[in-house]
Design a protein around this nucleic acid. Sequence first.
DNA 1: TCACTGCATGGCT
DNA 2: AAGCCATGCAGTG
Length: 930
Amino acid sequence: MGSHKNEKELRPLLMSSSSSSVKIGCFNSDCEAKPERSRKGWRLRNGQFAELCDRCASAYEGGRFCETFHLDAAGWRSCESCGKRVHCGCIVSFHAVALLDAGGVECLACANKNFIRAPNPVWPSPFFLHLPLPERLKDLSVKNWNQFAGSSAVAAQWRHAPSLWNTATALSELHPRMPYEIDRSNGIDKLVCGERPSASAMEKSRSEDPSERVVSSSLKFVPPERVANGNAGDDIPVETKKGVIVEPGKNTPAAGINYEAHPSVNMSVQSTPKDDMSPLHVDFSLPHGSHNETNGPSNVSGPQSQPQMPPSAIAKPLMAGPHNGVESSVETLVRNGRPRGDTRGRHQLLPRYWPRITDQELQQISGDSNSVITPLFEKMLSASDAGRIGRLVLPKKCAEAYFPAISQPEGLPLKVQDARGKEWVFQFRFWPNNNSRMYVLEGVTPCIQSMQLQAGDTVTFSRIDPEGKLVMGFRKASNIPPSDQEMQTPKSGNGVPKNGEANLADPSVWSKVDKSGYIAKEIAGAKASLPTKRKSSTLGSKSKRLRIENEDLIELKVTWEEAQELLRPPPDFDPNVVMIEGQEIEEYVEAPIIGKPTIFTINQLGLKIQWVQCEDCSKWRKLPFNVLPRSKWTCSKNSWDPKRSTCSSPQELTTEQLEDLLSSKSTAAPKKTKATKQVTEAVEASEGLDTLANLAILGEGEALLSSSQATTKHPRHRPGCSCIVCIQPPSGKGPKHKQTCTCNVCLTVRRRFRTLMLRREKRQSEKEAETARKKEQQLHQSPKAEPEDDDPLLSSNTSNSSSNPKQPLVNETVDDENLNSKKPSSSPLKGQIDLNIQPEREDEPSPTSDSCSMRLIRDATERYLRGQRQSSSGSDGDPITDQIEPGRGGVVEERLDGVPCGSVNLDGDMEHPVTLSMPMSTSTSTSATG
DNA sequence: TCACTGCATGGCT
DNA sequence: AAGCCATGCAGTG
């Protein structure tokens, strides 16, 4: 440790000189003696030691220096434990005082006692600290890491990491290969074994530090040496106190002294040493600095060796307190036991990686044991992370700060325990990347899957002491209010579902931290409060891809079909018709608008009807099936039933019927994700197509609709994108899909194709179409449809349904076509918009396929639908319920070959009677009603 | 053909 | 503007 500012008071003339060789006399400015043989006193900031005359040295060693030489100076306080007067305002006393978390100070004797009593085995014995570093480190080597990795390397390494001293050890252990480590060790050694001043420094944790929070019971570490000097005092429950080492560099209002918080012994890991000028820091920091891989051996001492560093990522949040918040990367290093960092400035981790774990979660991890959990960092899983590749990209700084140093790309096997206690071994490695490194954990798939994580969820890395194990917890994205997710403490984390009120473990901590978003959070829990920066920094930062996950996942978790179903041509649309591959494609300048979800049923007469809920009164009103109500539909727009054109009008449906209606609707969706193979496939397919749909719906680059899958597409994806993702064949099984395949994907593709074909046919001969339709209807005796529904296509597709009144009548294609034909629009084509079509990608089933292909497709489709109906049919009784299309959601694709919901907009509000020929599904569509 | 590996690319902070 | 890092994708087995 070095001298501090106060040092100057003692020895102004010598201050500038860092050389102990300069002997002008006793270092004590209050002493006139000129010792022949100087004795070492406190450590100066420059790493050297004050040279004192015998008398002063004796006083110093006896712990009487302050009272002897500046009893009247400011900065005297009483030990909170024993009441003894202790000086807190000079470099000499700096080492003999511990600042308590609760305020006040404690003499070293008391602090030491507490420390010694502390049952926490995590802390190394003071004696251990006294051992020359070389001794402690001699066995350490990179191998250790490897070995540990294989077994409990982490634990071993970190076991002693808690204390600064240990840190040194840990560091050494971690970086045995680095020469500088040795230097570091030396430096530390000096601190530990050297002259007393050096030993002093101990710590105290800051309550603000999340880590500390966890380790609130942290003990204060007092160097043995100090104890010797020490002042006796009463014991103070260590657990309840956190001390802060007094440092010359900073002023404590209360004490009028400079001090700084240092890593507490137990949680030193989390504390943040300052990189300020304090000698202590110097010693500690140096080692860290040395850790820098790019750095050569570092100097053991010297202020210069302690450049000011940004707070460590974790420490930062913690910093808030009286401290200036200046944290040194050192601390990070200390905590991790792995102080490396390319540059100190970089030690600071991005806020998005700051661990946000609640006490409860920590408790969960540690269980009832006395384990101390040290949150290290967290990361929201990207699509890649959660993908099958099994590679979890680790934030560089986090990897370098908390994982063992690796010099070879191959890295090391790293043992990680999940929240359930199960151990996993990942390969911690890196790839050279732009003159840097990209760290990854390989082989995480099993773990990720076991935790059922997906993109958007967050994994947290913590360390359990004294075991020193790495623990990987997780937090499901869905557990947290989307908007608050970023900011709030996970309700459940570390894989331990908790009620843990998402209170930030310690609001004060986070809020104070910085602008990174915590502040905002503190201010408001509401979405609005969500710090945009924060948000963007997490999901958003790199990814628009992920951005949608949380918020949108919930609100926009609609199927591709559902989304399209709700699309409505923009008002006053004026589509441009372009020819693409011989097909007329309508282009809309305006983005489509979103319509209102409805539920389709079939009444007793076999007429299709749809139910829509009034925006104002929430009553359900019956509308012609082909009406496309807008999103803000209200009773007043119910021109079809004047009696119920006001909100005051009673609802036509009975409560029971409504329940059935709604339940059917709600149950439909779940089915979608359920697991028949086909369903699953369908889901996948729809997800895979989401991109297209999203793009179509939201416009290029704006994929607001997220697939149910957290995975997102690369931002570069654009309509027509030919990347591997976009050109991916259905379900990624291209070749495996046979022509007769009836999987959702194939059906979808066929449907799309069919749509095109139908249009063509339509164009070719309206008359023929009409004829065909009638023919189809006759053949299949499709269920009754409204008079307007004379879509020939419909009949073809719905042949099956026709046989079963209860089956959904809707067939996307059919309906779609029906609508087209029915639509008021003078031109069958006019007003049609097929957002599902991407000319560039229509290559799958070529639009130009012949009718034979069409037939095959239809046949396959029908077979599939038949099967679906059979399997899903069976409900009867309530007209509504029964008629609501079962499995709507799950098999949507298959069943929706047509757009049941009207393409014709009869709604007064729908001034745009345009048919949207989109593959659709309406989760709401229903079947015949009796 | 597919899974895996490792580097390259480029959006974003 | 540098660097991070999510993802792409070629190479390999």
